[in-house]
């Protein structure tokens, strides 16, 4: 007997033999997380503390994202999970299987079919639509963390909008490398107020956050923080006047589907230096191949 046989979609556990609630978390926990999400949406970019729960997976595997997804998912939702842009990597497969089992929801690998997309490291290449929710798994929510170790101090800095330190980091990059060498988790300013860590997505994806039609939710399980970017919100990557923000550029197209202007992964083919560049977004790659 599988667990899903005993689950109802109304969110209440059945009496006989149910070991957990719809979507794993109990209703009180979901309410608590939803309150945090609502507050996060009301204050774009602000990190809302929440009472993160133990999940049946280790910290660092997306416990924050899973809790956010579990709190917002309903029986009619269609879930897509990506890890490094791919639908078929271990983490993506197991989180998808987890929600199939505990919520009995439909899953997909198609970006445009999904209503909730849980992601680690990427924003899909296919532009997101209104009504979709992108849930990020965040390892370290505090953009100032490696510059200022004290949580009390970083909270004060956010409260008083003291973000000079963030530019010290960028200055240091230019002084050392001649350009801003930060390629992922590139800090952004949300709606001219909070500086936010967009989680370790490549800076290539930063412009997609700006004025996105989809709701973007960020969950950090170990650090117990939730933050959000509501649809149509201004998101600006930090830079200097004489060293403006730039995204990565790739000289060759995807070796499989031939697309350009998208984010590519380097794949090592042998031990003699052979390599190729392919789409990091596997669903996008497949779609391109089907079209041609």
């Amino acid at each position: 007997m599988t667990a899903s046989n005993n689950l109802t979609h109304e969110g209440a556990p059945t009496m006989a033999g149910a070991t957990y609630n719809f979507a794993y978390l109990d209703e009180q926990t979901k309410r608590m997380i939803r309150r945090a999400i609502l507050k996060a949406i009301a204050i774009p970019g602000y990190q809302v503390p929440f009472a993160s729960r133990e999940m049946p997976m280790p910290y660092g595997w997306g416990t924050g994202g899973v809790q956010v997804t579990a709190s917002i998912i309903g029986p009619d939702d269609v879930l897509k999970v990506i890890d490094q842009g791919a639908d078929d990597t271990t983490n993506a497969v197991s989180i998808r299987a987890f929600f199939q089992k505990v919520a009995n929801v439909a899953v997909t690998t198609r970006t445009h079919e999904a209503t909730i997309i849980q992601t680690r490291h990427r924003i899909p290449e296919t532009p997101l639509k209104s009504g979709q929710v992108l849930v990020y798994q965040v390892p370290i929510p505090e953009p100032l963390r490696f510059l200022e170790p004290r949580e009390t101090e970083t909270r004060t800095m956010h409260a008083l909008e003291e973000y000079g330190l963030m530019h010290v980091k960028l200055y240091e990059d230019i002084a050392r490398h001649g350009y801003i060498a930060k390629t992922y988790a590139y800090p952004v300013k949300v709606e001219d107020r909070y500086v936010m860590d967009p989680s370790p997505i490549p800076k290539f994806d930063n412009p997609k956050m700006h004025m996105s039609e989809a709701l973007q939710l960020f969950g950090a399980g170990r650090e117990k923080r939730i933050y959000a970017i509501p649809p149509h919100t201004k998101v600006v990557s930090l830079d200097f006047e004489d060293h403006p923000f730039e995204v990565q550029k790739f000289s060759e197209p995807c070796a499989i589907c031939g697309s350009r202007g998208i984010y590519l992964d380097e794949v090592i083919l042998d031990d003699r230096g052979g390599h190729m560049f392919v789409c990091s977004d596997t669903d996008f790659c497949e779609e391109q191949r089907n079209e041609h």
Binding site: G164, L165, H167, V168, Y171, E172, F240, E241, D242
Partner: peptide, 15 residues
């Protein structure tokens, strides 16, 4: 960067 920190803190954004 140590010397520049205060300048960046008061809003200078030209490297």
């Amino acid at each position: 960067a140590n010397v520049g920190e205060r300048l960046m803190a008061v809003g200078e954004r030209h490297y």
